[in-house]
Design a binder for these strands. Structure first.
Length: 481
RNA sequence: GGCCUGUUCGUCUAGUGGUCUAGGACGCUGCCCUCUCAAGGCAGAGAUCACGGGUUCAAAUCCCGUACAGGCCGCCA
């Protein structure tokens, strides 16, 4: 175990939070960048919060985004197991070591909290937390309670004297007075470790060199430092990451809008676009590039360029990046993906590959596809005839009527119904009339689509619709006018 | 309440004492291109660098204070 080792250590909550995904991404990028190892560890020490199948969600999320890990529960590795609930003997052993050395003690206080100081208790002494009463228990008293079979927790002894200074890679030197710290619980009464304890033990045992996590852990990091010292362990590099906020500047939460990776995937965002976007939230490459593939990110990533300020998640920019990533994909690949979003009726009736060719450069997110192509399937016959009037192309109601009448017979006479054939016919008609082609295309488009804005030109749409359907729609427009 | 942290265009950000009359990107507006839209090209609006004091010949950049925001103070992680 040499070189850089980073880890992603999610709790199985049932969904992949986008902020968590960014933490995973940074840890992954840092490992790959430095030819190190990226490890997956499942932190399932809260038995009351277990969510069925949620480990699957973690696997799937990392798989779909391509954040492949070198060691993990399903991959194995030299420092397993990689699921905390399977490591209980390890935590107990370590907790007992501290117990024997006198840097931890058993606490028999119950969970009702009456040994915890509350905010309102004493304004003159504003520091909260456990009051440490069980520290004073004599060995005999402890034995007596133990013999009675009373439940207990193991707490770390933290003296109120002094302070701890640690260096955070992004936030710099952080000092916390020990008065602010209380005797944290290491082992819960159900025998499971707390996050605080398991995290330190595992990060050390798993040889993690760079601890990356959300900045909500900054305040408790001194406690972890104290734990490392109590064990005599080397302290890894700490890299705390600023939060990602929602539009109103609040923490991204499930209640308001999307936070789950799955919801973005369902909306038709490409995994590489999501990765690209979240990478830029709190980090920048130091150049003016913004469009990155995963490989590009690995190449450019540098923890020295992670920022401190929280950032607001802006779906508009994600959308822009998504459309760029859609354009960057090979047509065959993108067609595969689009296929999932085309309504069955479209797939059955049209050459969808051709549609993909038309819309690949215009789709911002794939869930927009049905809406974009629905007019092909069914013409909304109630469209307003005012759509035929377009100032720029100098079209009018009467003019359009005349054009469509001509087109109706002209197009009916076309032998080979393809782009060149249709375009040629329309083009020479325009030339003969001495008008710009737009003056002809406008009424054509409106007639065959019922829209003023279409993905692709009028000819392309006519080709897609086929001869008889195109003529039918033109005739209908004539009647309308 | 205590402690910790943050604050540059609406948003993401560049910026580590002089090159900043603050750069880029998204979004927005307009123009060009164009059979519509999108893409692309060009142009534009948009930031008294949270505020107030210092330090310095010189501060977005250093120091102090204030305000605002977030985090922590769980047998949650």
């Amino acid at each position: 175990m040499t070189g850089v080792r980073t880890r992603f250590a999610p709790s199985p909550t049932g969904y992949m939070h986008i902020g968590n995904l960014r933490t995973a991404l940074y840890a992954y990028l840092h490992a790959r960048k430095n030819k190190g190892k990226f490890i997956l560890r499942i932190e399932d020490t809260d038995q009351t919060r277990l969510v069925e199948d949620s480990i699957r969600v973690i696997y799937d999320s990392l798989a779909v985004t391509g954040l492949e890990y070198d060691e993990g529960p399903d991959k194995g590795g030299p420092v397993g197991p990689y699921v905390q609930s399977e490591r209980r003997p390890i935590y107990r052993e370590h907790a007992e070591k501290l117990l024997n050395e006198g840097s931890a003690y058993r606490c028999f206080c119950n969970k009702d909290g009456n040994s915890e100081k509350q905010p309102t208790d004493d304004p003159a002494d504003p520091i909260l937390g456990y009051d440490g009463r069980c520290r004073k228990l004599s060995a005999a008293e402890t034995q007596e309670k133990l013999a009675k079979g009373l439940p207990y927790v193991i707490r770390q002894k933290i003296d109120k004297e002094g302070r701890t200074i640690f260096n955070d890679f992004v936030y710099g030197e952080i000092t916390v007075d020990h008065k602010q710290l209380d005797d944290q619980i290491l082992l819960k009464s159900d025998g499971y470790p707390t996050y605080n304890f398991a995290n330190v033990v595992d990060d050390h045992l798993m040889g993690i060199t760079h601890v990356m996590r959300g900045c909500e852990y900054i305040s408790s990091t001194p406690k972890y430092i104290l734990l490392y010292r109590a064990f005599g362990w080397e302290i890894p590099e700490h890299i705390h990451l600023p939060h990602i906020l929602n539009e109103s500047g609040r923490k991204l939460s499930k209640r308001e809008g999307s936070v789950a990776l799955s919801s973005f995937l369902e909306k038709g965002y490409l995994p590489e676009a999501i990765l690209n976007y979240i990478a830029l939230l709190g980090w920048n490459p130091g150049t003016e590039e913004e469009f990155f593939s995963k490989e590009g990110l690995i190449e450019k990533f540098d923890i020295a360029r992670i920022g401190k300020a929280p950032s607001i998640f802006d779906e508009k920019k994600l959308l822009w990046l998504n459309s760029r990533h859609i354009k960057a994909r090979k047509p065959e690949e993108i067609h595969e993906l689009f296929l999932k979003f085309y309504p069955d009726a479209i797939v059955n009736k049209f050459d969808v590959k051709q549609i993909t060719g038309l819309i690949q450069g215009r789709v911002e997110k794939m869930s927009d596809i049905p809406q974009m192509v629905s007019f092909l399937m069914e013409l909304d016959e109630n469209y307003s005839k005012e759509l035929f009037v377009n100032k720029k192309n100098k079209t009018t109601l009467e003019g359009s009527l005349a054009v469509l009448k001509d087109l109706e017979s002209l197009l009916s006479g076309i032998a080979s119904w393809n782009y060149d054939g249709i375009y040629g016919a329309v083009n020479s008609y325009a030339e003969a009339k001495g008008v710009k082609i737009g003056a002809i295309m406008w009424p054509l488009r409106v007639a065959i689509s019922g829209l003023t804005v279409t993905p692709g030109g009028a000819v392309e749409i006519a080709e897609l619709l086929g001869k008889s359907e195109s003529i039918r729609r033109i005739s209908l427009a004539i009647r309308k006018l």
